[in-house]
C-alpha cells in the first residue's frame, strides 16, 4: 500500500488517465470515414447558410411578375424550370442532388445559371459563384468516394466559377477589391482545409492544385491591388502566374496519364486550363470570342445528347 493524501491521489489519477490518452496504441484511431461524413455535412450547411444570405441581400428581380410572387429564389427557379421542361417542378427539385455523372445534372447546372442570372447585385453574384464552386468541389469528392472519375467538365466548371468570382471582385469598385479578394481567398482556403483527410490520389491532387493556384493568384492581387485592378480592366495577358498555372496543370495531366494508362481523354473534352484565356473570355478581351462574358465552351462536356436539356450560355 502506498500512503498518499486525497489531493495527491487526485493528481496521481489525473496523471494516470493522461498517460492512457497520450500513450500511442492504447486507443484506436477514429476512422476518417466519420470525419468525412461530418465535413460533408458541415460544408453543405455552410453553403445553405450562404444561400440564405444571398436571398436576403437580393434587391431586384429582373422579371416584374416574379417580384409580385415574392417567393423563395429556389422555388421560383423550380417553377421556371418546370415550365421550361414542360413538366412538373419535381424533376427540377430532384436534379438538385444530382452528381455530374447523373442524367439530371444538366438541370442542376441550368438551375444555377438561372439563379445567377436572376441575381442583380454584384456582391450577391460573387457569393453565388463561390457557392457553386464549393458545390463542384463537394461533387468531385463525392464521386471520388464512390470510386468514379469526375468528368473533365466539373473541373472546368470549378475553375470557371472561381474565375467568375475573381472577375466580379474587380467589378465592385477599386475600394471593394481587397475585401472581396480576401473573401474569395478565405473561402477557397476553407475548402482546402475541408479536403484535408479526404485522401490523396490524382483526383484530389488536381483539385487541390487548382485551388492553390487560385489562392496564389489572389495573394498576388492582394500584394498589388492597383496593378491587379488595372490588369482586370485591361486584360490579364501574359501574366507570369497564369503561365505558371498552365505548366503545373500540364504536369498534373501528364501524371494522370501515367497513373491511369488507357484513360485517354478525348481531344474534345480537354479543357484549356490557362486561366488567362478564361479571364480574357470573361472580359471579352481576347478578340476572338463572339460571346464575351460567356463560359459556354467549358460546359460542352455536359451536352451529351442524352435527351436532357443542354446547358447554354455562361454566367454573365
Amino acid at each position: 500500500m502506498k500512503r498518499i493524501s486525497d489531493q495527491s491521489f487526485e493528481r496521481e489519477l489525473e496523471k494516470r488517465l493522461q498517460e492512457l490518452s497520450s500513450t500511442e496504441g492504447v486507443y484506436p484511431l477514429l476512422s476518417t470515414e466519420v470525419r468525412n461524413k461530418y465535413l460533408r455535412k458541415a460544408n453543405m450547411i455552410s453553403r445553405h447558410s450562404v444561400s440564405k444570405l444571398t436571398v436576403s441581400r437580393h434587391k431586384e428581380w429582373n422579371f416584374p411578375i416574379l417580384k409580385e410572387l415574392k417567393m423563395g429564389t429556389l422555388a421560383t427557379i423550380m417553377i421556371i424550370l418546370g415550365l421550361m421542361l414542360g413538366g412538373t417542378t419535381a424533376t427540377a427539385y430532384a436534379a438538385q442532388d444530382a452528381l455530374p455523372t447523373d442524367t439530371l445534372y444538366p438541370v442542376k447546372l441550368l438551375t444555377e445559371d438561372i439563379q445567377f442570372d436572376l441575381t442583380g447585385n454584384t456582391a450577391a453574384k460573387l457569393e453565388l459563384a463561390l457557392e457553386f464552386a464549393e458545390t463542384r468541389i463537394s461533387e468531385i469528392i463525392q464521386l471520388k468516394e464512390e470510386g468514379l472519375m469526375p468528368p473533365e467538365g466539373v473541373y472546368a466548371e470549378l475553375e470557371n466559377q472561381i474565375q467568375q468570382a475573381i472577375l466580379l471582385s474587380t467589378q465592385m469598385g477599386e475600394s471593394n477589391l481587397e475585401p472581396a479578394l480576401l473573401q474569395i481567398r478565405d473561402r477557397i482556403q476553407d475548402q482546402l482545409k475541408l479536403m484535408d483527410g479526404t485522401g490523396d490520389g490524382s483526383i484530389l491532387l488536381r483539385t487541390r492544385t487548382l485551388l492553390q493556384e487560385r489562392v496564389q493568384l489572389i495573394e498576388t492581387g492582394l500584394g498589388n491591388l492597383n496593378g491587379f485592378y488595372f490588369e482586370a480592366q485591361n486584360g490579364w495577358e501574359n501574366t507570369p502566374l497564369m503561365n505558371q498555372g498552365e505548366t503545373q496543370q500540364n504536369q498534373i495531366q501528364n501524371q494522370n496519364q501515367e497513373q491511369n494508362p488507357g484513360n485517354n481523354q478525348s481531344p474534345t473534352t480537354v479543357i484549356d486550363y490557362t486561366a488567362t484565356s478564361e479571364i480574357q473570355n470573361m472580359n471579352g478581351t481576347s478578340g476572338g470570342n463572339e460571346n464575351p462574358g460567356s463560359g459556354t465552351s467549358t460546359k460542352t462536356p455536359y451536352q451529351n445528347g442524352s435527351g436532357t436539356p443542354t446547358v447554354s450560355g455562361g454566367k454573365k
Binding site: Y27, V34, Y38, L39, A42, S46, S49, D190, Q191
Partner: peptide, 24 residues
C-alpha cells in the same frame, strides 16, 4: 452559429478525439 465551414471543421478536429476516447 453562423455555419462557418472552417470553424465547424475545427470543432471536429479539436473535440472528436476526446469524445471518441470517452465513448470507447
Amino acid at each position: 452559429q453562423q455555419s462557418d465551414a472552417g470553424t465547424l471543421a475545427r470543432i471536429y478536429e479539436e473535440y472528436s478525439p476526446a469524445v471518441f476516447r470517452y465513448a470507447f
